[in-house]
């Protein structure tokens, strides 16, 4: 990227408040990615432990200890994932009216945004009820 003569360095926008919202939205990607990596580690640990226990059941406790580390952080990483998911949902639903292929006035966009939030909440409670009572 050739640098143009006598122009301010291209990071002038970093401290502008308007770009903070852009940061916020993009950072939710990191949180969700960390959550995903944790689950990979978690599933890997489970599958690995099942295979090991199946073939040589009596292994020394140190190895078993290592295998069950992910369980301890279950709550922490899921919280991270949850925060990331909430941020992503709100910012993505905020952006969605822009992507829809007809140009809307500002008022219409707010309307569609609140509509999407309602749809999301409805769907979440529905899914939650489905998952919970099928558990009980």
């Amino acid at each position: 990227m050739k640098k143009l003569a006598n122009t301010p360095a291209p990071d002038w926008w970093k401290e502008k408040p308007a770009y903070k919202i852009y940061y916020f939205r993009e950072y939710s990607g990191i949180l969700i990615a960390i959550w995903g990596l944790y689950w990979l580690w978690f599933i890997g640990a489970i599958i690995f432990s099942r295979i090991i226990l199946a073939y040589f059941p009596d292994i020394d406790p140190v190895f078993k200890y290592i295998l069950f580390i992910p369980l301890k952080y279950y709550f922490l990483f899921n919280c991270i994932g949850f925060i990331g998911a909430i941020i992503h949902t709100i910012t993505w639903l905020g952006v969605m009216p822009e992507i829809l292929p007809f140009n809307l006035s500002k008022k219409q966009r707010h309307l569609i945004f609140s509509l999407l939030i309602l749809v999301w909440l409805g769907l979440s409670t529905l899914l939650f009820i489905l998952l919970m009572n099928s558990l009980l």
Binding site: I32, N78, T89
Partner: peptide
């Protein structure tokens, strides 16, 4: 993900 992930993690 925007629609499904939060309730899934919850």
């Amino acid at each position: 993900c925007a629609f499904v992930l939060p309730v899934f993690i919850f």
